[in-house]
Design a protein around this nucleic acid. Sequence first.
DNA 1: ATGAAAGCGCTAACAT
DNA 2: ATGTTAGCGCTTTCAT
Lengths: 353, 353
Amino acid sequence: MTRAGHHASRTAAGSVPTIKHVAARAGVSTATVSRVLSGIDGVRPELRERVHAAVSELAYHPNRVARNLRVRTTRLIGLVISDIQNPFFTSVVRGIEDVLQRADYTLLLGNTDENLEREQVYLSTLRAEGVAGIILAPTGKSSGHYGHLLPIQLPVVAIDRAPAGLSADTVIVNNSAGSCAAVTHLIALGHQRIGCITGPPNLSTAEERKNGYAQALQARQLPLVDCLIRYADFRQSGGYAAMQALLELDEPPSAVFVANNLMTLGALQALHERGLQIPSHVAIVGFDDMSWATSLQPPLTAVAQPTYLLGTTAANLLLARLREPHRPVQQIVLDTKLMVRASCGAQQRFLAL
Amino acid sequence: MTRAGHHASRTAAGSVPTIKHVAARAGVSTATVSRVLSGIDGVRPELRERVHAAVSELAYHPNRVARNLRVRTTRLIGLVISDIQNPFFTSVVRGIEDVLQRADYTLLLGNTDENLEREQVYLSTLRAEGVAGIILAPTGKSSGHYGHLLPIQLPVVAIDRAPAGLSADTVIVNNSAGSCAAVTHLIALGHQRIGCITGPPNLSTAEERKNGYAQALQARQLPLVDCLIRYADFRQSGGYAAMQALLELDEPPSAVFVANNLMTLGALQALHERGLQIPSHVAIVGFDDMSWATSLQPPLTAVAQPTYLLGTTAANLLLARLREPHRPVQQIVLDTKLMVRASCGAQQRFLAL
DNA sequence: ATGAAAGCGCTAACAT
DNA sequence: ATGTTAGCGCTTTCAT
């Protein structure tokens, strides 16, 4: 690193140097160069030295594409998610990236936008690019869409959602327990009429979170009122509209559980626009604990998902399968944590005591 | 797509079929298969037909790694950013991804965490993987860190930040104009003592936003007070601490301009914790218009960056250079837009009239 | 219009 | 301990 070296001295034609150039310059065979660079021992220190010298003189960088072809695998991992703009996923991606990068893998990213066709396109591109494995937040409900990955033995780990019948390593979150805890908390605070804004019925996460809500009510003998349950689209506008609908009810809820981060934002907006106070008029508990939760007034009570952990767990699972292709398939369920702040009314309670 | 076909009929050994298998099955040469699949015409319809039949019978998928080696380029684009968790970047990524995906390129993602060393590692990995081009949000201040990319003719487009002396296509935002507009707005609202929380001095964006603040004050003959300018780290905790420091001043500001999204969140938190009202006690204008801005109470006035456009512009710039390597280097400066909502006090004003 | 064959840059038997 | 060589799967001259 002390001397840069003139690029003029690189190769005859000024083109990018290959292993052959290095071999020639060091006066050894390409096999020896390869051995030295792969850290295989059994090479005389002197030759080793000469190779290293040649490498740095020529500013040689091994061509991974050639290597990938030869060894019939790559250091690439495909990552297919449905919404790169959702903070939930970016935190997951961060976790994945952190462990993969340490293991010298690089991520090939695909954003499907919840579009099944786009997902299929990505999956086949990733396959064509020869990725060593795939981490996927599946859009499809059933395993049918992913069957073609199995014959080629491509390791896949599913995250966030578990398509029915897909026999692949999976890491998900205990959604129903999380929302059940949230709603139970609301009930304990004295609420009897609690609304629920959940996601599209075809997404397992939306379904599970709604189920947790229902469980909580049933456990306390509270009736399940149909009109208090709203299916929106997991986006801000959906949460906004759903909250408006809830508020226009003859008998609006005194508290509402919102099943994801973006919809919570929309719901809040609807409340503010009507000048309604949180939690005195309507108490709120959200799903997903975001960076902005503590900056709201009042701070948002929310079910925190272990997003970063979800990412690292998925990446480690994939790494493990890469090392050991025949290990038994694993499904890991991560726990959520209820972050009690003020939007549910808990703080007021304490003050009142 | 009507019949799945038995995989048993694929190849002799059950391994992944190659172009040779297809050629054999169709009774043509591999060259012809290649021509058909590349859409090169001059192949008799009959042979074309046979090739397609063989392809689907064998469920053949071309191996891009082999192709990449042969044609000495890839359909891969490297993307190196500093913080995948920052909504600013995810929106940019979305824009990039949308245009690249349509052009049949796939993204190789690297998250540097603002770490120069990690950035270097990624850059060399990307180079080794043979990416066709790179989109980079540079962490380094000067072009020195990127010089080695030039000799190999690797097209690079810089986004968000422009390292001094780097002669590469660039797309940035007019930061100083944006923050100047924000602060000017505050002044017009009657504020005389305005604080500024900006980012690390080594980041061009932080510097420019502070400059815009200073310009606005100077234009209206307002003094530049040192203790009102705080350098934080562009993260939530930094904004929180900076706002606290500002509030502890003997003469605290009546308004503050916060130079990025995450720090605004922290600043808001500090205000809430002290029970201070926005905008009556302290008016706030942020930089970056996020999805949560409208859900705050009061809604946040902020300088909106055209993030998605920034992404698509960068991607298109790269695509253009790929097509036309010797086109003149371009620097594109995108405009910001001040989204006036209530946190600056503008709404109150209107009400008071 | 089609095929034969070389070769992209590397690794891994195999031979010495 | 080191070198020779075949070949990964594809594209692309060059012949025919």
